[in-house]
Write a protein that binds this DNA or RNA. Structure first.
Length: 230
DNA sequence: AACAATAGCAACCGCCCCGGT
DNA sequence: CACCGGGGCGGTTGCTATTGT
């Protein structure tokens, strides 16, 4: 079966995996003309690919200096930090990871955080249940077993067993609550802080960012002022 | 060994922004 | 000012490889 359904789209552009020959044509084009003007690649090289496809292939795969292989713990730390600050601004995060692409970072984040979903769902249930329990305590002293769904009861029992950490942390953002997850990544605080200090140097020293309100600098200020608690 | 589930990743899609006309 | 095309970006898809049963 052909990947992506068909070989060509409605405009006649080839789709799907790139061949070594196509890569070679694109590399030759960029070496002659530089990056940009992607829409003229097909005219200049005979490569039957859309400009967007060419750009994507170059940026994510062919560009010199791209790192291959697994992300280092330091890189993971930077991603975690910056994602906590900026959200899904993959291209912005990628600027602080030389040799890594936004697509790679995005994929990394997705694959690692997909694992969280059951945990998050559980936490959401627990939060809901906690609110319910509080309401029950507020409005009634009669805490005889009221009719509840069986899974709710199970969650309730689980919650009671687990040292009531949820109740203690219920007003913290989710990322702070999920200490079990964070401990998977962070074995010590130190390297993360080291990365943050160097990150701040980059920002202050090089004026990285768009200048649109200075959110990056503010964000680092926030981190340094103790916004992060591991 | 065979099958199923999951992880990893390349590539596409659709939207938005920006500059040129 | 409106329109258009190119480029950039985040989200999503679907194939392959790996791991588990």
């Amino acid at each position: 079966m052909e990947r992506w359904g068909s070989v060509c789209d409605e405009k006649g552009w080839r789709k799907g995996p790139w061949t070594p020959e196509e890569d070679k044509l694109l590399i030759e084009y960029v070496s002659r003309n530089g990056e940009g003007r992607w829409s003229s690649v097909s005219n200049s090289t005979g490569l039957n690919r859309s400009g967007k496809s060419c750009r994507l292939r170059w940026v994510n795969y062919l560009r010199p200096g791209l790192k291959k292989g697994h992300l280092t713990p330091q890189e993971e730390g930077i991603i975690i930090e910056l994602h906590a600050l900026w959200g899904n601004k993959w291209s912005a995060i990628a600027r602080y990871l030389p040799g890594r692409t936004d697509n790679e970072i995005k994929n990394y984040w997705r694959t690692h955080f997909k694992k969280r979903k059951p945990c998050e769902a559980k936490q959401e249930k627990r939060r809901t249940l906690t609110q319910k329990l509080q309401q029950e305590q507020t409005y009634s002293n009669n805490i005889d077993e009221s009719p509840q769904a069986s899974d709710e009861i199970n969650i309730k029992k689980e919650t009671e067993i687990e040292h009531s950490t949820v109740q203690n942390n219920q007003f913290l953002p989710i990322m702070y609550q999920d200490t079990e997850f964070w401990s998977d990544f962070i074995t010590t605080d130190n390297y993360l802080w080291d990365e943050l200090w160097s990150l701040n140097d980059m920002i202050v020293g090089n004026h990285v960012g768009t200048g649109g309100g200075g959110c990056e600098g503010d964000a680092i200020d926030y981190v340094q002022s103790g916004g992060y608690i591991f």
